[in-house]
Design a protein around this nucleic acid. Structure first.
Length: 427
RNA sequence: GGAGGGGUGGCCGAGCGGUCAAAGGCAACAGACUGUAAAUCUGUCGGGUUUUCCCUACGUAGGUUCGAAUCCUACCCCCUCCA
């Protein structure tokens, strides 16, 4: 557990504490000492892993803190392993959930894994070097597990009594939600993953979100009991916004890290709209900016805090999508919001020139532009004063929009409210 | 296997023969206020070209009624207690 006055000597743990990544860890003092030895060149880099589910074809902002943990780990001269849960995803982590996850088929898992791999390549350096990241898939060993030998070798180290006492299981049972035996095995397999990674790759540290604490501790103990290994666990805090909402949800859904799932412009916007109270915290967690700079930014008064939000958006987007995409997103945002214009990175919707020539009712165009889910919703939006055409309020939902409405740049800017815009271009 | 309770809109949760597209809350969207923030207030919140009209919807399939989310039958699923 975390010692209250723990002051780490190692670069890595020092950074975690300073930047707010540390929730708790097993024997942090010993881990700190090992890390220092590496820094002094007295031992080879330590190897840490974090496991990721393959439940979607991209990771989202909720996993970003974990990705950043691996990134800092690598920057501090240690070696990261990204563990893809190709095997465990077929079971579904029951931690703190009331319902079972839907079981995914192998093809879907495979596809998801490919999408997730690309995200990591932006945050970590992969390769064969001593501190290069590697990616492994736990299906490689879980798929071929033999049931009886596995039970005999590992099952005997788990008591049901203890497993039932873990919050992740206990809370579910207390709420009288069913927990299947399949899901119940998840924690055993995750513990086994840790031991297997130690054996195969010499991995000695597992990190993860605080909801993984129970699973991580199980792995540490299993390693000690079965092979006398000294393993460590480190968790990061569960993140919520200052107003208490879970991170990573927006109107359009999850904030994906993959440009196909969420455009860099929308990603930039997500960070730009951070609540005032979160700016400092997020700068520390999701950018590489130095502490003194962050201190200055987070104390900007009143509306000036918006400068800090832009920098947050710039740096977070650069990490995830590259500097070019970030610059374009910022440019688009500034022309759209500060000059009332429209930048290139706004979503564009091609509409056949002939249809525009004939005129399309405003409500219908809102729908094709993706700004409303149905004609009715579009009408409501316009009736409520939320529809704009090239910046001007749309009074009548039936008002035809034609080529006459093309602006100087040859496009039509449609807006739903102040933040959602789309460009209609004749095709 | 026996007894009882329950399955309602994105979620929670009322309704228990017409006045029900279904109270209330949350979430969401828009408006006002602002700073592309938070909080607050207002409006909207199944679909249909603007609708005193139509369609779809209250686990599934039938039925009784002029009329059902509400009653009946069968089936599926969940929960509780007993065995």
């Amino acid at each position: 557990m975390t010692e209250p006055a723990f002051t780490p000597a190692s670069a890595f743990l020092g950074r975690l504490v300073e930047r707010g990544y540390l929730n708790q860890g097993t024997d942090l003092t010993a881990l700190d000492a090992r890390l220092v030895e590496v820094e002094k060149g007295q031992r080879a880099p330590l190897i840490a892993y974090i496991g990721f589910d393959c439940t979607a074809e991209s990771l989202h902002v909720g996993s970003l803190i974990q990705i950043m943990l691996l990134r800092h780990w690598q920057q501090c001269g240690q070696k990261p392993i990204v563990l893809m849960g190709g095997g465990t995803t077929r079971i579904g982590d029951p931690s703190f959930r009331d319902d079972s996850r839907p079981l995914l088929d192998d093809a879907t898992i495979e596809r998801n894994m490919a999408g997730i791999r690309r995200v990591f390549e932006r945050f970590l350096t992969f390769g064969d070097g001593p501190t290069d990241a590697i990616m492994v898939n736990n299906a490689d060993w879980l798929d071929e597990l033999a049931y009886i030998p596995f039970l005999r070798d590992y099952g005997r180290h788990f008591t049901i009594n203890r497993m039932l006492s873990f919050d992740s299981v206990r809370l579910r049972l207390e709420r009288e939600q069913p927990l299947t035996f399949l899901e119940f095995n998840y924690m055993i397999l995750q513990a086994y993953d840790f031991v297997e990674l130690a054996r195969r790759h010499g991995c000695s540290v597992q990190m993860g979100g605080s909801d993984q604490w129970g699973n991580i501790v199980n792995g540490v103990e299993l390693g000690r009991r079965t092979q006398g290994l000294e393993l460590f666990g480190v968790t990061s805090p569960l993140l919520t916004t200052a107003s208490g909402a879970k991170m990573g949800k927006t109107a359009q859904g999850a904030v994906w890290l993959n440009p196909e799932s969420l455009s860099p412009y929308d990603y930039w916007q997500y960070w730009r709209n951070t609540e005032d109270a979160d700016v400092g915290r997020f700068l520390r967690l999701f950018t590489d900016l130095p502490e003194d700079e962050i201190g200055r930014l987070e104390s900007l008064p009143g509306a000036e805090i918006n400068q800090a939000k832009k920098l947050l958006a710039d740096h977070a987007t650069t990490l995830c999508h590259g500097a070019e995409a970030a610059a374009e997103a910022r440019h688009t945002a500034e022309t759209t919001f500060e000059q009332g214009g429209s930048g290139e990175a706004l979503p564009t919707v091609p509409v056949p020139r002939a249809e525009l020539g004939a005129g399309i009712p405003a409500y219908a165009l809102m729908v094709t532009a993706g700004l409303a889910g149905s004609n009715k919703e579009a009408r409501r939006l316009i009736a409520g004063g939320g529809g704009r055409l090239n910046g001007a309020l749309i009074e009548d939902a039936n008002r035809p929009i034609t080529i006459e409405d093309l602006d100087a740049a040859g496009q039509i800017k449609l807006s739903a409210g102040k933040k959602r815009h789309a460009l209609v271009i004749p095709a």
